[in-house]
Each structure stands twice: as C-alpha cells, then as structure tokens.
Simulated assay, not measured.
Amino acid sequence: MAVQKKLTEANLTVGFVAKRSGVKVSTLHFYENKGLIRSWRNSGNQRRFKPDVLRRVAVIKAAQAMGITLEEIKQTLATLPEQRTPTQKDWSALSKQWQAQLDE
C-alpha cells in the first residue's frame, strides 16, 4: 500500500526510481543529462520524478537490450506527442520499427 501511494505521487526520489527500475542513480542522472527522462527540483533542490518515468526507463532498457543506441531511443521518444511516456501500443510500434532497423 505504501509503495502504491508513492507511485501515485508526482514526487518520486531518484533513489526510489533507481531501486524500482533496477538502474543505478548515476544511470538516471546520465539519462536525464541526455534528455531521455525529465525531473524537477523541489524546494530543497532535490530531484523528483513523476511515476511515468518508471515506464520510460523500462522502455529505454528494453531498447538498449535490442541494440538500439541512446541517440536513436531519444529521437524515437521525441516523436511521441508532447514527449509522453510510451504506452503499450507505442512500445509495440516502436519495437517493431527498431526490429526492422536491426534486421537491415
């Protein structure tokens, strides 16, 4: 229940996101620096993430596992309306596009 409450709030800490997504804090900082994910700063100047960042990180990890570069991932995610987090339907289309690219 406490985890569910945290996921519905728009103020996930970088440590929580790292633990939940299975990546290091430094990886999240790297992804943010590359423009793959976004955070905001609270009044104490600490990074905070919206819950949808967990799905975005999962998509990034899956794409990397397929051999897609971070730059290609960034370009593809930028095509989504308002740079939203990919839905299941989006992921299906993205992965098919990337698979065709890899097959070439």
Rank of each mutant, 00 (worst) to 15 (best):
Q83G: 01
K19H: 13
P86G: 04
A10T: 10
N11W: 07
Q75D: 14
R20A: 10
L28R: 03
V59N: 01
T69W: 08
S43H: 08
V14W: 01
D52A: 03
E9G: 10
N45R: 09
Y31E: 09
V23C: 12
I60H: 04
K89R: 15
A2E: 13
F30K: 07
I68L: 06
S95E: 09
I73A: 05
Q97L: 14
K50F: 12
G44H: 10
K89P: 00
L36F: 00
V14R: 06
R55Y: 01
T8Q: 14
F16E: 03
R47N: 08
K6A: 12
L70A: 00
Q46F: 13
T87Q: 14
R41N: 07
I37M: 04
E72V: 00
G67E: 06
F30Y: 12
A93M: 11
P51V: 04
D90E: 12
A10K: 15
G67F: 04
K74Q: 11
Q83C: 05
L28Y: 02
T87K: 14
G67V: 08
L36P: 10
T79F: 01
V14S: 07
P86I: 01
K61P: 01
F49Y: 15
K24W: 00
W40A: 08
R56A: 01
K34A: 09
V57M: 03
S43E: 13
L70W: 02
T76I: 02
P81E: 10
T69L: 06
P81C: 11
T85W: 01
N42S: 11
K74E: 10
N33D: 12
A63I: 01
L94I: 15
T69G: 09
D52Q: 14
L77R: 08
L7P: 00
V59K: 02
E72M: 12
A65F: 04
K34M: 14
E71Y: 02
S92G: 05
V17P: 05
A2H: 09
V53W: 05
K34H: 03
A65Q: 11
S43T: 12
N33E: 13
Q64W: 04
L70G: 15
S26F: 03
V53P: 08
Q88I: 15
Q75H: 13
L36G: 09
R48S: 03
E32M: 02
